[in-house]
Design a protein around this nucleic acid. Structure first.
Lengths: 227, 227
DNA sequence: TCTTGACTGTTACCGCTGGTAACGTTACTG
DNA sequence: CAGTAACGTTACCAGCGGTAACAGTCAAGA
C-alpha cells in the first residue's frame, strides 16, 4: 500500500542516494571508462535485487526491486530489458558460482563419484541457503522464446559441456551428453524442490540417495569406454 | 447486522431440511443429480480450456478460456477458485491418464526394465503430442502455497507411492521412495523440456538414454534386496 | 562562455491480467 | 403463487510489466 507519505519518503530517499553518488564521483574525478561505470551500476542493481528478493520472496515486483536500489523502474529496464533479462543476469551470477565450484573439484582430480557428490551437494546447498533467490531464478516464464531463460537451463547447458568432453575423452557416445546433463540437473532440481518444501531429511542423505540412483549408470560408461 | 444466534440456528435448520428434501427427491425421481450436473459442466469447461490452450498456447488468459467455453470469467472462477485451481484440475486429468498407463503396465507384470521404459515413454509421448497443454500444466506459480500445484508434483507424488510399495516389498529402505520419485520425474521433465525445444533426437532414443542413466541404480536395489 | 550531446534519472501514463462485487435470469420446489 | 438456489452477466478494481516523454547534470568543442 503506497500511501502518499510512503511515496514522499521513497522519493526523498532516492534523492539522498543520488546526491551521495554524485559526491562520490566528484571526489575522485577518475573518469573511469563510461562502460565500466555502467557495469558497476549494473552490479549494484543486481545486489539490490538479491537483497530484496531474499527479504520479500520471489514474487517481488520490478517496482519494489527498483525502489530497493534507490531508483525507479525505467532504470532497471534500461539495464536488463525486461524481467526475464533480470532473471537471466541473476541466474548467470549463481551459475558461475556453481560452475566454479564444479571446476575446482574437477581440477582437484577427485574420485569421480566424489565429484558427482560434490556437485549435487553444491547445488542443494544453494537451494537450502537461498530458497527465495533460488525460486526467483528458477521461474521460467516465456513460452515462445527458445533461448536460455532460467537458471536450470543454464546449469544444464554447462554441465552438458563438461560431460560431453568427458564422454569424448573416454570414447563413449557423446550424444548422451545433453540428455544426461538435462536429466541430471532436472533430477536434482525437482528433488531439491520437494526437499526444501518438505524438509524430510538432512541434505547429506538426499545427496546420497540421488547419487546412488545415477552413479551406477554413469560408472558403467566410465568403465566400459567405447561400448 | 442480523447475527442473532436464533436466526442462524433457524437458518441452519431450514437448510438441513432442504438438503434432506432434495436427497429424497433425488431418490424418487430420476431427475439427474444437481451435483453431477455441476460436475458435467466442470468437465465441459475443462474441455474448452484444453482446446483453447492447444490452439493459443499456455499463456492464454482466463478471459479467453471462459470465452471459449461460451461464458464469462466469474463462472470459471466459481468452478476452480483461481488460475492455479484450473491448472490443478487439468493436471489431475492428465496425471490420471498417465498413471493409468503405468498401472496397466504394472499389472501386465512386464519386465521391470520395460516397465521403466514404458513409463518414461508415456510421459514423453504426452510432452510430444501436446506441448502447449504440457507447458500450461507444468507452470507452477504460487510461491508460498505448499500443496500440490503443478502436474510434475502430482506425478511425482503418485510415482512415490508405487515406488514405495515396491521398495517395501523387497525389503529395501523405503525412505528412498520420495527422493527417487521426485528425482526420476524431474529428470524426465527437464530432459523432455529440452528435447521438445531442440528436437535433437527421436523420442525412442531419448527414452533409451534416460533409462540407461538410472536403470543400473534401480536394478541394483531390486537385486540386492535389503542392502 | 555558451552550446551540444550523451547519460542518468524522473513522472505519468498504457494495456492487460487475475480476481471480485453486485446485480439479473432461469428453473425448480413448497 | 412465492422463494431459493444455481447460472449467468456487467462493470469494476488493484497491480503488474513495460514505455514515452521530459528534466537535470556533466564533459567537451566552437
Amino acid at each position: 500500500m503506497p500511501t502518499e507519505g510512503n511515496r514522499d519518503a521513497a522519493r526523498e530517499a532516492r534523492r539522498a542516494q543520488r546526491v551521495e553518488r554524485h559526491a562520490r564521483r566528484r571526489q575522485r574525478h577518475d573518469h573511469v571508462d563510461r562502460d565500466s561505470r555502467r557495469l558497476a551500476r549494473r552490479e549494484e542493481l543486481l545486489d539490490a535485487a538479491v537483497e530484496v528478493i531474499r527479504r520479500d520472496g520471489p514474487a517481488v515486483s520490478m517496482e519494489v526491486i527498483a525502489a530497493e536500489a534507490g531508483v525507479t523502474k525505467p532504470i532497471v529496464y534500461r539495464h536488463f530489458g525486461d524481467r526475464s533479462g533480470l532473471v537471466a543476469a541473476l541466474a548467470k551470477r549463481f551459475t558461475d558460482e556453481l560452475m566454479g565450484a564444479l571446476q575446482s573439484s574437477l581440477e582437484r582430480d577427485a574420485e569421480p563419484r566424489d565429484l558427482l557428490v560434490g556437485t549435487i551437494d553444491a547445488y542443494l546447498a544453494f537451494v537450502e541457503k537461498e530458497p527465495n533467490l533460488y525460486r526467483f531464478v528458477v521461474q521460467h516464464v516465456d513460452a515462445g522464446a527458445e533461448e536460455l531463460s532460467g537458471f536450470v537451463r543454464q546449469v544444464a547447458k554447462e554441465v552438458a559441456v563438461v560431460l560431453g568432453e568427458r564422454l569424448r575423452e573416454i570414447g563413449y557416445d557423446s550424444g548422451a551428453a545433453e540428455p544426461w546433463a538435462y536429466g541430471l540437473v532436472g533430477m536434482v532440481h525437482l528433488a531439491g524442490d520437494w526437499w526444501v518444501d518438505s524438509g524430510a531429511m538432512p541434505r547429506a542423505r538426499l545427496v546420497e540417495y540421488l547419487t546412488t540412483l545415477v552413479w551406477d549408470g554413469l560408472d558403467r560408461v566410465e568403465n566400459a569406454g567405447a561400448g
